[in-house]
Protein backbone atom coordinates (compact mmCIF):
# COMPACT_ATOMS: atom_id res chain seq x y z
CA UNK A 1 0.00 0.00 0.00
CA UNK A 2 1.29 3.42 -0.89
CA UNK A 3 2.50 4.97 2.39
CA UNK A 4 1.65 8.37 1.00
CA UNK A 5 -1.91 7.50 0.14
CA UNK A 6 -3.29 9.99 2.62
CA UNK A 7 -1.05 12.84 1.60
CA UNK A 8 -2.89 15.47 -0.26
CA UNK A 9 -1.55 17.25 -3.29
CA UNK A 10 -0.60 20.80 -2.28
CA UNK A 11 -2.90 22.14 -4.96
CA UNK A 12 -5.78 20.34 -3.28
CA UNK A 13 -4.94 21.94 0.02
CA UNK A 14 -4.96 25.33 -1.64
CA UNK A 15 -8.31 24.55 -3.17
CA UNK A 16 -9.66 23.42 0.18
CA UNK A 17 -8.50 26.65 1.75
CA UNK A 18 -10.26 28.72 -0.87
CA UNK A 19 -13.29 26.50 -0.50
CA UNK A 20 -13.42 27.08 3.23
CA UNK A 21 -13.22 30.81 2.62
CA UNK A 22 -16.23 30.52 0.34
CA UNK A 23 -18.09 28.56 3.01
CA UNK A 24 -17.50 31.11 5.74
CA UNK A 25 -18.40 34.03 3.54
CA UNK A 26 -21.63 32.29 2.50
CA UNK A 27 -22.79 32.99 6.06
CA UNK A 28 -24.55 29.66 6.09
CA UNK A 29 -24.37 29.21 9.83
CA UNK A 30 -22.12 27.80 12.49
CA UNK A 31 -22.77 24.14 11.75
CA UNK A 32 -20.97 24.34 8.42
CA UNK A 33 -18.01 25.93 10.11
CA UNK A 34 -17.83 23.08 12.58
CA UNK A 35 -18.08 20.56 9.77
CA UNK A 36 -15.29 22.34 7.95
CA UNK A 37 -13.07 22.27 11.02
CA UNK A 38 -13.79 18.58 11.50
CA UNK A 39 -12.93 17.81 7.90
CA UNK A 40 -9.67 19.73 8.19
CA UNK A 41 -8.72 18.03 11.44
CA UNK A 42 -9.51 14.62 9.95
CA UNK A 43 -7.31 15.31 6.94
CA UNK A 44 -4.48 16.43 9.19
CA UNK A 45 -4.75 13.29 11.26
CA UNK A 46 -4.78 11.15 8.13
CA UNK A 47 -1.57 12.83 7.01
CA UNK A 48 0.00 12.21 10.40
CA UNK A 49 0.02 15.75 11.80
CA UNK A 50 -1.06 14.53 15.21
CA UNK A 51 0.56 17.28 17.24
CA UNK A 52 -1.15 19.95 15.19
CA UNK A 53 -4.53 18.39 15.80
CA UNK A 54 -3.78 18.04 19.49
CA UNK A 55 -2.93 21.73 19.62
CA UNK A 56 -6.16 22.54 17.81
CA UNK A 57 -8.25 20.53 20.22
CA UNK A 58 -6.47 22.04 23.20
CA UNK A 59 -7.02 25.59 21.92
CA UNK A 60 -10.66 24.88 21.28
CA UNK A 61 -11.08 23.43 24.76
CA UNK A 62 -9.46 26.49 26.35
CA UNK A 63 -11.72 28.84 24.39
CA UNK A 64 -14.89 26.97 25.26
CA UNK A 65 -13.93 26.76 28.91
CA UNK A 66 -13.04 30.44 28.94
CA UNK A 67 -16.33 31.41 27.38
CA UNK A 68 -18.17 29.48 30.06
CA UNK A 69 -16.17 30.94 32.93
CA UNK A 70 -16.10 34.51 31.73
CA UNK A 71 -19.64 35.17 32.88
CA UNK A 72 -18.25 35.22 36.42
CA UNK A 73 -15.51 37.67 35.62
CA UNK A 74 -15.61 41.47 35.95
CA UNK A 75 -16.64 43.43 32.89
CA UNK A 76 -13.28 44.62 31.49
CA UNK A 77 -11.87 41.12 31.71
CA UNK A 78 -14.98 39.70 30.11
CA UNK A 79 -14.77 42.22 27.28
CA UNK A 80 -11.12 41.49 26.68
CA UNK A 81 -11.76 37.76 26.71
CA UNK A 82 -14.68 38.11 24.35
CA UNK A 83 -12.61 40.06 21.87
CA UNK A 84 -9.89 37.40 21.97
CA UNK A 85 -12.25 34.48 21.81
CA UNK A 86 -14.22 36.07 19.01
CA UNK A 87 -11.18 36.56 16.86
CA UNK A 88 -10.21 32.94 17.33
CA UNK A 89 -13.61 31.49 16.60
CA UNK A 90 -14.21 33.62 13.58
CA UNK A 91 -10.95 32.67 11.97
CA UNK A 92 -10.52 29.18 13.30
CA UNK A 93 -12.25 27.45 10.39
CA UNK A 94 -9.95 28.92 7.80
CA UNK A 95 -6.93 28.78 10.11
CA UNK A 96 -7.40 25.03 10.33
CA UNK A 97 -6.86 24.76 6.59
CA UNK A 98 -3.85 27.01 6.84
CA UNK A 99 -2.52 24.60 9.46
CA UNK A 100 -3.23 21.71 7.16
CA UNK A 101 -1.22 23.39 4.46
CA UNK A 102 1.67 24.34 6.70
CA UNK A 103 2.05 21.17 8.74
CA UNK A 104 1.70 18.66 5.95
CA UNK A 105 3.58 20.29 3.07
CA UNK A 106 7.30 20.70 2.58
CA UNK A 107 8.68 23.76 0.87
CA UNK A 108 9.79 21.75 -2.12
CA UNK A 109 6.39 20.14 -2.55
CA UNK A 110 4.76 23.54 -2.39
CA UNK A 111 7.18 25.01 -4.92
CA UNK A 112 6.67 22.09 -7.30
CA UNK A 113 2.89 22.43 -7.01
CA UNK A 114 2.96 26.17 -7.67
CA UNK A 115 5.20 25.72 -10.67
CA UNK A 116 2.87 23.07 -12.01
CA UNK A 117 0.21 25.77 -11.82
CA UNK A 118 2.50 27.79 -14.10
CA UNK A 119 3.63 30.27 -11.47
CA UNK A 120 7.09 31.45 -12.66
CA UNK A 121 10.07 30.25 -10.64
CA UNK A 122 11.22 33.81 -10.06
CA UNK A 123 7.88 34.63 -8.44
CA UNK A 124 8.50 31.91 -5.87
CA UNK A 125 12.13 32.86 -5.19
CA UNK A 126 11.37 35.44 -2.47
CA UNK A 127 9.35 32.91 -0.48
CA UNK A 128 12.03 30.24 -0.86
CA UNK A 129 14.66 32.67 0.36
CA UNK A 130 12.41 33.69 3.24
CA UNK A 131 12.11 30.18 4.58
CA UNK A 132 15.75 29.45 3.96
CA UNK A 133 17.01 32.43 5.92
CA UNK A 134 14.82 32.74 8.94
CA UNK A 135 17.03 30.33 10.95
CA UNK A 136 20.19 32.10 9.82
CA UNK A 137 18.72 35.45 10.84
CA UNK A 138 17.91 34.13 14.28
CA UNK A 139 21.47 32.89 14.61
CA UNK A 140 22.84 36.26 13.54
CA UNK A 141 20.57 38.01 16.02
CA UNK A 142 21.84 35.80 18.82
CA UNK A 143 25.48 36.35 17.88
CA UNK A 144 24.93 40.09 17.79
CA UNK A 145 23.23 40.20 21.17
CA UNK A 146 26.01 38.05 22.64
CA UNK A 147 28.54 40.52 21.32
CA UNK A 148 26.51 43.37 22.77
CA UNK A 149 26.42 41.64 26.12
CA UNK A 150 30.20 41.23 26.09
CA UNK A 151 30.65 44.90 25.31
CA UNK A 152 28.30 45.87 28.07
CA UNK A 153 25.95 47.54 25.62
CA UNK A 154 22.78 45.89 26.83
CA UNK A 155 20.65 47.58 29.40
CA UNK A 156 22.77 50.67 29.34
CA UNK A 157 21.83 53.88 27.62
CA UNK A 158 18.66 54.57 25.71
CA UNK A 159 16.68 51.94 23.84
CA UNK A 160 17.10 53.69 20.50
CA UNK A 161 20.84 53.23 20.66
CA UNK A 162 20.33 49.58 21.44
CA UNK A 163 18.07 49.20 18.43
CA UNK A 164 20.82 50.74 16.33
CA UNK A 165 23.37 48.34 17.77
CA UNK A 166 21.23 45.43 16.68
CA UNK A 167 20.18 46.79 13.31
CA UNK A 168 23.52 47.89 11.94
CA UNK A 169 25.33 44.53 12.01
CA UNK A 170 22.10 42.67 11.26
CA UNK A 171 21.19 44.63 8.14
CA UNK A 172 24.76 44.84 6.89
CA UNK A 173 24.84 41.06 7.25
CA UNK A 174 21.57 40.80 5.35
CA UNK A 175 23.05 42.78 2.48
CA UNK A 176 26.17 40.63 2.39
CA UNK A 177 24.18 37.41 2.54
CA UNK A 178 21.94 38.60 -0.28
CA UNK A 179 24.91 39.29 -2.52
CA UNK A 180 26.57 35.95 -1.81
CA UNK A 181 23.38 33.98 -2.25
CA UNK A 182 22.60 35.73 -5.52
CA UNK A 183 25.92 34.70 -6.97
CA UNK A 184 25.52 31.12 -5.72
CA UNK A 185 22.09 30.96 -7.35
CA UNK A 186 23.09 32.57 -10.65
CA UNK A 187 26.07 30.27 -11.07
CA UNK A 188 23.65 27.38 -10.97
CA UNK A 189 21.29 28.81 -13.49
CA UNK A 190 18.46 30.32 -11.46
CA UNK A 191 16.22 32.35 -13.72
CA UNK A 192 17.44 30.74 -16.93
CA UNK A 193 13.96 29.45 -17.74
CA UNK A 194 10.52 30.52 -16.73
CA UNK A 195 9.83 27.27 -14.88
CA UNK A 196 12.05 24.53 -13.51
CA UNK A 197 11.74 20.76 -13.73
CA UNK A 198 11.20 18.60 -10.70
CA UNK A 199 11.95 15.02 -9.81
CA UNK A 200 8.76 14.49 -7.82
CA UNK A 201 5.74 16.02 -9.42
CA UNK A 202 2.59 16.61 -7.40
CA UNK A 203 -0.02 13.97 -8.14
CA UNK A 204 -3.71 13.69 -7.51
CA UNK A 205 -4.76 10.61 -5.60
CA UNK A 206 -7.99 9.16 -4.30
CA UNK A 207 -7.78 11.14 -1.11
CA UNK A 208 -7.67 14.38 -3.11
CA UNK A 209 -10.90 13.51 -4.88
CA UNK A 210 -12.56 12.64 -1.57
CA UNK A 211 -11.38 15.85 0.10
CA UNK A 212 -12.44 18.08 -2.76
CA UNK A 213 -15.81 16.37 -3.02
CA UNK A 214 -16.39 16.84 0.71
CA UNK A 215 -15.51 20.51 0.54
CA UNK A 216 -17.64 21.01 -2.53
CA UNK A 217 -20.57 19.43 -0.74
CA UNK A 218 -19.99 21.75 2.19
CA UNK A 219 -19.90 24.79 -0.06
CA UNK A 220 -23.11 23.80 -1.83
CA UNK A 221 -24.86 23.05 1.44
CA UNK A 222 -23.75 26.32 3.03
CA UNK A 223 -25.11 28.27 0.11
CA UNK A 224 -28.33 26.38 -0.41
CA UNK A 225 -29.31 25.49 3.12
CA UNK A 226 -28.28 28.35 5.40
CA UNK A 227 -29.21 28.04 9.03
CA UNK A 228 -30.18 31.21 10.79
CA UNK A 229 -28.71 31.80 14.18
Amino acid sequence: MDPNRFRLDPRTKLLLLVGMNVVIYSFGGARYLYLGVALGAALMLAAGAVRAVALLVATYAVLVAGDALVTFAPDPVAEAWNALSLSFFVFLPTAVYAMLLVTTTTITEAAAALEKLRVPTLAIVPVLVLFRFVPALIQDFRAITSAMRLRGLIGRGNPFRMIEFVYVPLLLGVVRTGDQLTVAALTRGLGLHRNRTFVTEPRFRGIDVVAIAAMAALVVAARLAPVDA
Binding site: P120, L122, A123, V125, P126, V127, L128, V129, L130, R132, F133, V134, L137, I138, L170, L171, V174, T177, G178, D179, L181, T182, A185, L186, L190, G191, R194
Partner: peptide, 24 residues
Protein backbone atom coordinates in the same frame (compact mmCIF):
# COMPACT_ATOMS: atom_id res chain seq x y z
CA UNK B 1 10.56 38.58 -13.68
CA UNK B 2 10.18 39.30 -17.32
CA UNK B 3 7.95 42.31 -17.59
CA UNK B 4 8.25 43.25 -13.94
CA UNK B 5 11.81 44.39 -14.24
CA UNK B 6 13.12 42.75 -11.10
CA UNK B 7 16.38 40.85 -11.28
CA UNK B 8 17.27 37.67 -9.43
CA UNK B 9 19.26 39.81 -7.02
CA UNK B 10 16.19 41.99 -6.35
CA UNK B 11 14.04 38.97 -5.69
CA UNK B 12 16.55 37.50 -3.28
CA UNK B 13 16.77 40.89 -1.56
CA UNK B 14 12.99 40.91 -1.25
CA UNK B 15 13.11 37.42 0.22
CA UNK B 16 15.65 38.27 2.87
CA UNK B 17 14.06 41.56 3.85
CA UNK B 18 10.66 39.96 4.10
CA UNK B 19 12.28 37.38 6.39
CA UNK B 20 13.42 40.22 8.66
CA UNK B 21 9.99 41.81 8.53
CA UNK B 22 8.07 38.67 9.32
CA UNK B 23 10.47 37.53 12.00
CA UNK B 24 10.11 40.88 13.74
Amino acid sequence: MAGMGLSVRDLITIGIFSAVYLLA
